[in-house]
């Protein structure tokens, strides 16, 4: 059933992202077109940098909105009457949402980098010192990353998504009838503070105590613990305390 749920979820969400990618490539081509108009290269450099920062911000906002609204609407809105009456387990529902969100984050990141790469390829002869240095830095970071550093980033993304799912599920419990969004924001701030301090504390106490206790390894293990925690609690709340209004 997981495959069928994934199929439905991708069908429900792909339009948001395809339109975002189209916008991304449109900005790219408009920027490339500007180059042919003979505008000063330095000025063009600034425009392109600003465009890419704006697009990166837009991608982050769209991803966040889709992750939150899709989970909330399809489970605790009217669509929940269908989602929760399908013959599927609660864990497969959460897993489906998690996988699709993660895939869209990954694809969005790749689409953004691809755009940046095309710009560099096409305008290679222009002195894009700032932009080139930035891309060079990213390339070097990826090349020099250890597996645990890459896994740490992946785990942090998954942890972030599951944290949001937990908050949405919690704020939809039967005893919270009003002020769901403010309660969610306060809870987010509180739990986020606790989690961050716990991680800082653990890194501070354990880092370099042994050769395998690197910053990345400690962060990775802590993220895995919180992944299991957020996933288990979310599924538990759905199984035992669900109410679709």
């Amino acid at each position: 059933m997981l495959g069928k749920l994934l199929k439905q979820e991708f069908k429900a969400t792909y339009k948001n992202f395809v339109s975002l990618y189209i916008a991304l490539f449109l900005i790219l081509f408009v920027s490339l077109g500007l180059n042919k108009t003979g505008i000063d290269a330095e000025f063009l450099n600034v425009i392109l940098m600003l465009s890419f920062v704006a697009v990166a911000a837009a991608i982050c906002v769209v991803i966040l909105i889709v992750i939150i609204s899709r989970f909330d609407k399809s489970l605790y809105g009217q669509e929940g009457y269908l989602t929760f009456t399908l013959p599927v387990t609660e864990s497969s529902i959460v897993l489906t949402k998690l996988i699709t969100s993660f895939v869209w984050i990954l694809l969005s990141g790749m689409a953004f980098l691809l755009c940046a790469y095309i710009v560099l390829l096409y305008l290679g002869e222009i002195n894009w010192s700032d932009f080139n240095e930035f891309m060079q830095m990213i390339r070097q970071m990826i090349q020099s990353s250890t597996i645990s550093q890459i896994l740490m980033v992946i785990a942090a993304i998954i942890e972030g998504i599951l944290f949001l799912y937990f908050l949405i599920t919690f704020t939809n419990l039967s005893f919270i009838n009003r002020f769901r969004i403010p309660i969610g924001i306060v809870l987010y701030a509180l739990i986020n503070t606790v989690v961050t301090r716990l991680k800082i504390f653990a890194v501070d106490k354990l880092a370099n105590a042994a050769s395998y206790l690197t910053f990345a390894n400690i962060e990775l293990v802590l993220s895995l613990i919180f992944i299991v925690l957020f996933f288990t609690v979310t599924v538990y709340l759905m199984k035992k305390h669900l109410i679709v209004r």
Binding site: F84, T85, H241, L242, I243, V244
Partner: peptide, 10 residues
């Protein structure tokens, strides 16, 4: 009905 359909667990 919500109890029978699994939309209400408590």
């Amino acid at each position: 009905i919500k109890v029978l359909t699994g939309l209400l667990k408590e």
